[in-house]
Each structure stands twice: as structure tokens, then as C-alpha cells.
């Protein structure tokens, strides 16, 4: 290739650049499906929201349900447990949050949380630890109170709340 040709970045260069660009687009478009297939399938996405009938959970009871494959605590709190959670001073908390931030207004009896310890993901046990109506993670000893807030142990955060809303007083939609 002589110097003359180099100084003339004309149709030839344009053709090579255009072809290269089209090639890159082609390879990229072909590669994306191969990656995206690892994302949740339509069958998994269809379970991204679940509805749950709360009328089956008696006061004082705790049930474990599934949402996106995750274990979810649905706890029907007693007035005592609510009062205790509301009465706790924020200063005593490792991850300060008032009880009102843990539940929906007017539905204080319902505590709905992802049942994985925020330390390393074990499912804590109910009502066997330091706090009455609270949780106790057997894996590494984290203690949660009756609002699912971490009080001691290695866990850094309160039990996580999934997105949810009340469709009626007895029907909740999670996700």
C-alpha cells in the first residue's frame, strides 16, 4: 500500500468500517441471547408475585410460605408483641428502625419478612431465643426481636421485608 492510498480515506475505508461495524452488531446480537437465557425463565417470572390468604393464620401463629423460591415468614402478632416492639428504644437497636417501618399502617399485626438471616442466609428459628416472639439464628447466634430487628450477634441488618401490599384485610400480594 502506497502513501497516496493512505491519504485518501475514501470509499474503501468506509466499506471496511461499515462491514466491521455490521459484523460487531451481528456478533453482539447473537451473543446476547446466550447470556440472557440464564436470566429467570418465563415460568420463574410467573411466580414473581404470589397472593396469600391471611385468614388462615391465627393470632400468635407463624407460617412459612414461598415467594420466588425464598422462604417468607408471615407472622400474626399478638397485641403484647406489637406493644413490646413499639416500646423498644431506637438506641437499643443495631439497625435502628421503628416498628412502624416494619409493618403497614393499620395492619400492625402482620409482620411479613424474608426468612433468611442477614448474616449468611440461614432460616432463624421462631421464639426459641432471647426475645419472646422473636427469632434466633442457630447458625451463628444472631437474635431478632418481635419486629424481626437484629438485636445481637453477627447479623448486620434487620430481617429484610419483601415488597408487598394488602389487597384486602385478609389478602396480601407479595412481589
Amino acid at each position: 500500500m502506497t502513501a497516496d492510498v493512505k491519504n485518501e480515506p475514501t470509499r474503501r475505508d468506509f466499506l471496511y468500517i461499515a462491514t466491521g461495524a455490521v459484523g460487531v452488531v451481528g456478533v453482539g446480537s447473537a451473543a446476547w441471547p446466550l447470556v440472557d437465557q440464564m436470566n429467570p425463565s418465563a415460568a420463574v417470572q410467573a411466580l414473581a408475585t404470589v397472593e396469600f390468604d391471611l385468614s388462615t393464620v391465627e393470632q400468635g401463629a407463624l407460617v412459612l410460605i414461598k415467594w420466588n423460591g425464598l422462604p417468607i415468614f408471615v407472622r400474626h402478632r399478638t397485641p403484647d408483641a406489637i406493644a413490646e416492639a413499639q416500646g423498644t428504644a431506637l438506641a437499643d437497636l443495631k439497625d435502628p428502625a421503628p416498628d412502624s417501618a416494619r409493618v403497614k399502617l393499620g395492619q400492625e399485626q402482620w409482620l411479613i419478612m424474608i426468612a433468611n438471616c442477614t448474616h449468611l442466609g440461614c432460616v432463624p428459628e421462631f421464639d426459641t431465643g432471647v426475645f419472646r416472639g422473636g427469632w434466633d439464628c442457630k447458625c451463628h447466634g444472631s437474635q431478632y426481636d418481635s419486629a424481626g430487628r437484629v438485636r445481637s450477634g453477627p447479623a448486620p441488618k434487620n430481617l429484610v421485608l419483601p415488597p408487598y401490599e394488602f389487597l384486602s384485610d385478609t389478602l396480601v400480594k407479595i412481589g
Binding site: P33, L34, D36, Q37, N39, S41, A42, A43
Partner: peptide, 13 residues
């Protein structure tokens, strides 16, 4: 069939 129906791009792959 699950691949064809539900996996992202599964029908094509």
C-alpha cells in the same frame, strides 16, 4: 419443551 416455551430465547437456541 420448557426450553422452547419458557427459557429466554430458548426457542431460538
Amino acid at each position: 419443551e420448557f426450553i422452547r416455551r419458557d427459557v429466554n430465547w430458548g426457542r431460538i437456541i
